[in-house]
């Protein structure tokens, strides 16, 4: 039996689509409300008015506003983000180049955070109230309070500047060109990704632990846990197989939204580590007033968040058999 009705799913999809349309409209309005236009940076003092008008025409700015809006909405829904006035290449080409790098970094950070966080949370939740729980919990909160960028600088200072163990910039060595074998590429990327990855994961795993710990504590009071203990199963088996599996449900749902926000937090970490992803791109685009690129970057992040939200609803029903959406 399906746990989510087609009607409910359809409704959620429509709501998500409308949300995206609103976001697109806001993006369009914000761009147009800024002084000047995105071609302003291309206008030089010697240009004559007719040349500026020609430039406006080329970039579609002479169309009536409503038509610009319609074009924008249609184009964005078909993945046509226009040209970057800075780089003079399609915005989509830039996105395709940048997005995977962001996903690699934050995918890795996500995996680390969602392995370490639940494990520690499980352990602390099982031992809740003990001295071990209190001391680890308190120190974790201290970590959680640290700004990621500050921690990042600390790691750079220690592991790169002082010890020289790890790289603090880029995704791989730029020069000299190294031999592109699978092993050398992986090694090279690992050498570069480790610091930004631990900077991100170090803070984020605590957030996951904070969800897992009370969840774990709750299930330890459940009958099936007492039953498992009464059956004489080892504490480790009860903790992992019977308690933790059930305690993971809120963590799993939180993880989907967490991933979206993890990507959202890319701006600072990518800047600090010169990681050439979407976050760095947004900063550069805003600074250089490359509005088409900035707009497309924000849009892609918005799509990710909206889609993750939608997936949360769907996946949740499969993770927790008690949940049924869209039925009487």
């Amino acid at each position: 039996m399906t746990r989510i009705s087609a009607r409910y799913l359809g409704k959620r999809i429509v709501v998500s689509y409308i949300t995206l349309l609103v976001i697109m409209t806001l993006l369009f309005a914000l761009l147009r409300s800024m002084p000047g236009t995105f071609i302003s940076s291309m206008i030089t003092p010697e240009m004559q008015p007719e040349q500026i008008q020609r430039m406006r025409e080329v970039w579609g700015l002479n169309e009536p506003l409503w038509k610009q809006y319609v074009n924008f909405m249609v184009n964005y829904q078909t993945g046509e983000f226009g040209m970057s006035p800075t780089n003079r290449v399609p915005v989509w080409d830039i996105m395709i180049r940048r997005l995977p790098r962001t996903l690699i970094l934050f995918g890795a950070a996500f995996i680390v955070a969602y392995i370490v966080g639940p494990l520690v949370g499980m352990y602390l939740g099982w031992l809740r109230g003990s001295r071990k729980d209190k001391s680890i919990f308190a120190s974790s909160l201290v970590m959680y309070s640290m700004p990621a960028f500050w921690l990042a600088w600390l790691f750079i200072w220690l592991f790169n500047y002082e010890l020289g163990w790890l790289e603090s910039t880029y995704m791989y060595h730029q020069f000299p060109q190294f031999e592109w074998t699978v092993v050398s590429t992986i090694t090279n990327v690992l050498h570069h990704i480790t610091l930004p990855l631990i900077s991100l994961a170090f803070v984020n795993w605590v957030g996951v632990m904070l969800v897992m710990r009370p969840s774990m504590n709750n299930v330890t009071e459940e009958d099936y846990v007492f039953l498992a203990q009464a059956k004489g199963l080892s504490e480790r088996t009860v903790m992992i197989k019977h308690a933790a599996r059930n305690a993971l449900i809120p963590v799993a749902t939180q993880a989907i939204v967490g991933l979206a926000f993890l990507i959202d937090g890319s701006i600072i970490i990518e800047q600090v580590f010169s990681w050439p992803g979407i976050g760095q791109l947004i900063v550069n685009a805003v600074i250089s007033k490359d509005y088409p690129v900035a707009q497309a970057s924000f849009f892609i992040l918005a799509v990710l968040v909206v889609v993750m939200r939608l997936l949360t609803d769907v996946v949740y029903t499969y993770l927790d058999p008690r949940i049924k959406f869209g039925e009487g």
Partner: peptide, 20 residues
Amino acid sequence: VNFQIYGETAALTQAFMRGE
């Protein structure tokens, strides 16, 4: 000449100070 791009001035300054 190899040109390397850093995300911000502080990272660039550090890269010079450590010989990168």
